[in-house]
């Protein structure tokens, strides 16, 4: 994803790291969430814009952006699949870039502009990507779907902006929205129902319509 070239990390290191993370929850004596010195949770005020609407809230500093959206603002379209940045169900668009909202704390989003699935379109006013997912049956149970749709909308913008991926062969030429590029870039969004083949067809249709 965006910014990955800042990290001096190859695929093997990444896999080793992921394996260690996977084993961690089994270890005794992992770090515990710390309340404030008086035993009470530390709260902090945060102001941000969600789907064009301004919100100011006092939030527990441990609250993720995901839980702020779901539990505080009741925007439950953004899903919690793993709470660890492993599945992509919580993907939202923050200041134009897609992120896993479970991996950022709400207090880190002061002044941010967040777009969630509810902001892209509504049942009677669908975003073209939402309509394409319906037409191509790019979902089944629907739980990963908002994340897939937010991710695909932002992913196409990344391609337009010329940001390369692991499968980009020519770093000097404009990046093309090929199926291989899309499959690579969407791989952070897991669909256990296995609608991948249809999702790529849905995104392709949106690309073709955009010309």
């Amino acid at each position: 994803m965006v910014g990955s070239d800042d990290l001096n990390l190859n695929r093997r290191d990444l896999m080793v790291g992921a394996g260690a993370c996977a084993a961690m929850p089994a270890m005794p004596g992992t770090a515990k969430a710390q309340p404030g010195p008086d035993g009470n949770p530390v709260e902090f005020q945060v102001s941000l814009t969600v789907n064009g609407k301004s919100h100011t809230r006092n939030v527990d500093t441990r609250t993720t952006l995901l839980d702020l959206l779901r539990e505080n603002l009741h925007l439950t379209g953004t899903k919690k699949g793993c709470d660890h940045g492993q599945c992509g169900a919580c993907t939202v668009i923050v200041d134009g870039r897609r992120i896993n909202s479970c991996l950022t704390l709400a207090v880190m989003q002061e002044g941010s502009s967040v777009t969630t699935i509810e902001g892209l379109g509504q049942p009677d006013n669908l975003h073209p990507m939402q309509a394409a997912f319906i037409k191509h049956d790019g979902y089944q149970c629907g739980y990963c779907t908002p994340g897939q749709i937010c991710s695909s909308v932002a992913m196409l913008e990344e391609i337009k902006a010329g940001i390369p991926s692991h499968v980009t062969a020519d770093l000097l030429a404009p990046v093309q929205p090929t199926e291989t590029e899309m499959r690579e870039r969407m791989s952070g969004n897991i669909c256990r129902c296995g609608a991948y083949s249809n999702i790529v067809e849905a995104i392709t249709e949106v690309v073709e319509r955009q010309g």
Partner: peptide
Amino acid sequence: DGKYKTTGT
């Protein structure tokens, strides 16, 4: 149910 699943509703 597509329009609900795709809009998070």
